[in-house]
Every structure is written in C-alpha cells, then in structure tokens.
C-alpha cells in the first residue's frame, strides 16, 4: 500500500494519531458504560421492567440493533487494546529507569493504566462468556425465559462477585485518569477548564463504580431478589 492509499496508516504510525484513536475509542466505551449502567439499574425497578428492557435490546431494529452495537463496541475495544499495548511497549523502550526513581505529581491511577486495562479486558471476556454467550447451560436455560433471574443467580456466587468487585474498582481507577485524558488528547483541555474536567472525571468514575457494584452487592449480601 502506498502512502496515498493508506491515510489511516500514517495516523496510526504517529504518536499523536495513535493516542487520538485511544481517546476516541475510549470515549465510545465511556459513553457505552453510562448507557449500560442505566439499563442495569432497572433491576431495582422490578423484574418486569428489567425483562422488558432486555427484550427491547434484542428486538430493536428487528433484532439488528444489538448486533450493530456489539460490532461497534468490539471494534472500539480491539482498537483501544491494540493501540494501548503498542503505546505502552514504545514508552517502555523509550524511557530508561532512574536508579533513584521519583514521581512529582502523576496519580497512581495514571501509572497503572495498562494493568487496570488488562484486568478490565480479562473481566470483559469473562463477563461476555457469563452473561452473553452463557457457557453455563443452567444459566442459559434461565436466561431464555427470565434475564432478571439470570442476574440474581449469576451474582449468588461469591467468587463471581469478588472478581466483579476487583474489576469494577480497577475500572474506576482507569476512568478517573482516562476520562480527563480524553479532553487533553482531543485538545479540549485548558488551565481554566482543568479543575472542572478533573472533577467530572473522578465523579464519573465514582458513579460507575458505585452503580455497577450496587447490583452484585445487593444480591449477594442483602439477598435482593433471592
């Protein structure tokens, strides 16, 4: 492929271009998380509301809607992961270590992005096998008639809840740096807006953490729905 037919290669191969793709795909995933959480919280409204919502997801656009969403999300996730692993490797190669290491003000979350990210990746794979592909035939059987019950049964397992909690905590860490980062990478941050962006980022991460955790905790510890 020559340069003129591969505009995207040029963008991909530049530092800022690759970062831009990380930010844009990150933004799509961030917006998805908000929608996903809003839908999931319907579980507290009631069995009927939750099952109707699940039904709606599978019937919108005559059933094509859910597949379009899956395709977009999967593409974004793959681009995000491939780009960040590549960036992390380039960064390690570019930066020799000091004997006496010191950090001036970078946050802990910003320094473990690759580890929080890889944990999220492991979680996403597990989560899809658990609730989307449903490798557990018992759970798959329940899901056919009652998605609400599938969630209750799924979260009655202590190990599942523990892994879920660890993953959500690292997701919260990832987002607390990631959301603010989007603004800088897209060139939308300035000294004036920085404090607001910082609050938005941490606030969003906290809402995601509390929101997603509330469901398994309510089911496992407070016997919600059981």
């Amino acid at each position: 492929m020559n340069a003129s037919t591969c505009s995207l290669c040029t963008i991909w191969n530049s530092s800022i271009g690759k970062k831009l793709l990380v930010a844009l795909t990150g933004l799509v995933l961030v917006l998805f998380l908000a929608g996903h959480l809003a839908g999931n919280l319907l579980i507290f409204v009631g069995e009927e509301a939750f099952n109707e919502y699940a039904e709606m997801l599978h019937t919108m656009l005559h059933g094509a809607g859910v597949w379009i969403a899956r395709a977009v999300l999967l593409t974004c996730l793959v681009i995000h992961v491939v780009a960040t692993i590549s960036l992390t490797r380039l960064n390690r190669a570019a930066s020799p270590k000091y004997v006496h290491e010191q950090t001036i003000q970078a946050s802990k979350s910003s320094r473990i992005m690759i580890w929080s990210g890889l944990t999220i990746l492991a979680f996403v794979i597990f989560h899809l096998l658990h609730f989307t592909v449903r490798v557990d035939s018992g759970l798959a059987e329940i899901a056919k008639t009652n998605p609400h019950k599938m969630v209750i049964v799924g979260f009655s397992n202590g190990l599942v809840v523990l892994f879920y909690a660890i993953a959500m905590t690292l997701l919260c860490s990832h987002l607390s740096h990631g959301v603010a980062s989007i603004f800088q990478t897209l060139g939308l941050r300035s000294k004036k807006s920085a404090p607001l962006i910082e609050k938005l980022s941490k606030g969003y991460a906290l809402v995601i953490w509390l929101g997603f955790l509330s469901i398994p905790l309510a089911i496992y510890f407070f016997k919600f729905g059981r």
Binding site: S14, S15, K19, A94, Q105, A106, S107, A180, Q184
Partner: peptide, 13 residues
C-alpha cells in the same frame, strides 16, 4: 517520533 521519544500519557510530570 523519529528520534525515539515516547508518547504522552497526560500525567503532566
């Protein structure tokens, strides 16, 4: 990029 510098991760060090 050609000089082999790393990529920004918005940590502001």
């Amino acid at each position: 990029d050609a000089e082999g510098f790393g990529n920004c991760t918005n940590q502001y060090e």
